[in-house]
Computed example of a mutant assay.
Amino acid sequence: MGNLLRVLNDKGGSVPKVNLFVDFEKAQPTDAEKAVYEKVAAVLERAPRIIDELGGYTGAGEQIREAISKPSNEDTQEKAWNAVRPLVLQLKTYYEFCTELETALTSILSVLCSADMTAMSHLEMHQALTKQLAEILDFSLKFDDLKMNNPSIQNDFSYYRRTMSRKRLESNDQPRTTGAASNSVEGEVDMRDDVANRMSLFYAHPTPLLNALSATTKRFVEMHSELPLENTTDCLSMVACVCRVMTENPNYYTRFENEETIYFCLRVMVGVIILYDHVHPVGAFAKNAPIDIHKSVKVLKDHSQKTDGLLNALRFNTKHFNDEQTPKATKTLLSS
């Protein structure tokens, strides 16, 4: 493959020694990838706009505080409600986009984890889909970081739900006129209760999208019982190793046209380690895991000016970091 250099695949230990260049900047789909690639691309093309919007999300905190402090003032109540409703519709759009990403991830895993070739061969033959997997993980880390650092998101949605419940109760208490709508507040309902419930659970999680993608990956494994678990975990661990090697080795990272691609690789490495840790029964921190956590942490610390959040993600968003079986040296390394 012109865009990929496969130098060595020597599994001398539990961690595969892999030198592999995947062109995350320019990889194009082969004919075999095109059907899945185009469906996923139609979803991912909206990702930059959503990150920009979420980054500029200011919320309705001022109006909500005013309404809470003056509960009998109808004007302040109406101002808060009118401020919150369009914001909640934005949050609904982001939630729906994230559910589309879950579907996209499943489509990609169906190809990259299929039994017809090894994980290494899949990355070699399906670079464009590997790039899209990386883009989903990159988006998820950016999305979750913006959400986690913006309490207005949960505050706005909580206020919306409380106000909607109150309006329904008030409407039910009012006498009904013959021929009138059974519930006058229904004209203000922006979503069904089941959607609101799912959104509430989604946004309540500190890192909602990574949590959702982890659950999606586990469901993929459960639904494809004909595939050995190793098909999925080998794919994830191989992507993690490739991302690490490409940021360690100047023969590879000097081939990037954009320096930001290095940080893209680091975000993807962390995202895929988190997925692996949630899917594998023992996790990514076990001594015999096929991911070199120590080298992964080292490369993050080598770029510490932009990776503090990624180190925290490994500590707080993984499933097995605090297990007794996690080596003490690993815990010390990540905590220092």
Results as ranks from 00 to 15, higher is better:
Glu33Ala: 07
Arg267Gln: 13
Glu260Gly: 05
Tyr263Gln: 11
Glu96Tyr: 00
Ala329His: 10
Ser171Trp: 00
Lys295Val: 00
Thr130Asn: 07
His224Arg: 09
Leu236Thr: 11
Ser165His: 01
Ala47Gln: 10
Gln174Gly: 09
Pro206Asn: 04
Leu129Glu: 06
Asn183Pro: 05
Arg6Thr: 14
Leu333Glu: 12
Phe256Asp: 09
Ile136His: 13
His294Ala: 14
Asn211Leu: 03
Thr330Gln: 05
Ala35Met: 08
Lys167His: 08
Ser335His: 05
Gln63Phe: 01
Leu20Ile: 05
Asn288Glu: 14
Val36Ser: 12
Glu66Met: 04
Thr330Lys: 00
Ser184Thr: 15
Gln77Arg: 09
Gln305Val: 02
Cys113Pro: 03
Asn149Pro: 04
Gly59Trp: 12
Glu135Ala: 10
Pro281Ala: 02
Asp23Gln: 01
Lys92Leu: 09
Pro208Trp: 01
Thr261Ser: 10
Met223His: 14
Arg192Tyr: 06
Pro16Val: 08
Ile51Leu: 15
Pro151Glu: 15
Ile262Glu: 01
Arg192Leu: 04
Asp23Ala: 03
Val239Tyr: 01
Cys265His: 07
Lys319Gln: 03
Pro71Cys: 06
Asn288Leu: 06
Tyr203Glu: 04
Asn258Leu: 06
Cys243His: 01
Ile293Pro: 05
Leu89Phe: 04
Arg168Asp: 13
Asp277Ala: 01
Cys241Asn: 15
Ala240Pro: 07
Thr76Phe: 08
Leu146Ile: 11
Gly179Ser: 06
Thr163Asn: 13
